[in-house]
Simulated assay, not measured.
Amino acid sequence: MTLDGDSLVGYLRAEYAASGKWRVASFFVGLIVALPAVASVVTNDAQTLYFLAVANLVLLAIWTWINVKYGQKQNAAHSARRAALIVNGLGEELSAGEKRRLMEKFTVGVEAAENAKKSDYYASASEPGPLKLLECLEESAFYSSKLHRVSANAWIGIVVAYAVAFAIVAVFLIPSATNDVLMMAVRIFFAATVFILSADVLGSLLAHWRCSAETSAVLSRIEIAKQGEVNSADALLIMEDYTSAIQSAPEIVPFVYRTQEASLNSLWAGYLKG
């Protein structure tokens, strides 16, 4: 499989799909990692506490390994995205050395990338050059700003669901609870809150919000740049800022694109019409 524009799109789509799956695994294992800490507040038995400590260590090791794999796949996806933008936008071919470096970095197989190819991934019909690169960036920034905003809202839903669940428990528990039961409930709440305040939840929420705002700003800059003569320096600088915004954010919440695809495509069609 040659690394032309369509092939790179196949790799970026396949790599992002794989990255999303590992992010889901990271989230759920991260949730499970918090369970031994929660369970430790309800027992004083030394043997049970020892077992919980061992379980916590094993789960933490698994979570770390998953996050390493997630990082590798996300980095591969980012590399494919950068290369796809440049090759499709400027219409130039990568050198043999850069192709080899990319192939060594990719984590998905050739067949997966082939199946993920999409010839109309970028809507621009302009001739290869700075303008087409900007138009490819414009489309990417449009979808990114919307998807990261929806992803932030999804994390808000998780935090709200946690708060509602605790509130419901409190409503039923407090009226008839003894002081010891209430104190234990508070300890459990504090232990579980460690997970909510970790980078996997609150940090991800803030990162999605930030990415949505930054890619929206990139979109505005592209609109202004297209009003005049587009040069390579401006196009590459805007691409660098878009890249910085995307790479500082986690993968969009899995299934968000699938559920929002029709709506976003309609919004994009309206955007193109002005």
Rank of each mutant, 00 (worst) to 15 (best):
101 R>C: 04
269 A>Q: 10
135 E>C: 12
180 D>K: 15
112 A>Y: 01
173 L>Q: 07
48 T>I: 11
59 L>K: 01
25 A>H: 02
181 V>N: 15
133 L>M: 03
115 N>R: 12
55 A>R: 03
265 N>P: 09
74 Q>N: 14
86 I>M: 14
139 E>M: 05
238 I>D: 00
74 Q>F: 03
181 V>A: 15
99 K>W: 01
188 I>T: 07
135 E>G: 08
268 W>H: 09
74 Q>D: 07
203 G>D: 07
151 S>W: 03
51 F>D: 01
135 E>M: 12
211 C>Q: 02
38 V>N: 10
79 S>F: 08
158 I>A: 06
143 Y>Q: 01
17 A>E: 04
40 S>Y: 02
157 G>K: 00
111 E>F: 08
234 D>M: 14
262 A>P: 11
8 L>R: 00
96 A>K: 14
23 R>E: 07
46 A>N: 06
74 Q>T: 12
33 V>A: 00
61 A>T: 13
95 S>V: 05
173 L>V: 13
63 W>L: 12
55 A>K: 00
198 S>A: 12
270 G>L: 08
38 V>T: 07
9 V>D: 04
220 S>E: 06
177 A>E: 04
123 A>N: 08
114 E>I: 08
261 E>L: 05
193 T>L: 15
8 L>G: 01
44 N>T: 07
185 A>W: 12
67 N>D: 09
181 V>H: 14
81 R>L: 07
121 Y>R: 02
7 S>L: 05
197 L>N: 12
222 I>W: 05
143 Y>N: 09
199 A>Q: 07
29 V>E: 00
56 N>T: 13
251 E>G: 08
178 T>M: 14
94 L>P: 03
234 D>F: 14
137 L>I: 09
119 S>T: 15
190 F>I: 06
140 S>Q: 13
236 L>K: 15
149 R>N: 14
213 A>L: 08
90 L>Y: 10
79 S>G: 14
124 S>L: 06
103 M>K: 11
82 R>V: 12
207 A>H: 05
26 S>A: 11
214 E>H: 03
231 N>F: 10
189 F>W: 11
104 E>S: 08
213 A>T: 11
37 A>S: 14
243 T>E: 13
252 I>A: 05
261 E>Q: 11
7 S>E: 06
88 N>P: 05
47 Q>R: 08
250 P>Q: 05
190 F>Q: 13
233 A>K: 13
33 V>I: 01
188 I>V: 13
82 R>E: 10
198 S>V: 10
14 A>P: 03
239 M>W: 10
123 A>W: 05
28 F>G: 10
41 V>S: 01
62 I>K: 02
214 E>N: 10
126 S>Q: 15
18 A>L: 02
251 E>V: 10
205 L>I: 15
125 A>Q: 10
44 N>L: 05
10 G>I: 00
181 V>I: 15
24 V>W: 09
41 V>N: 05
212 S>F: 02
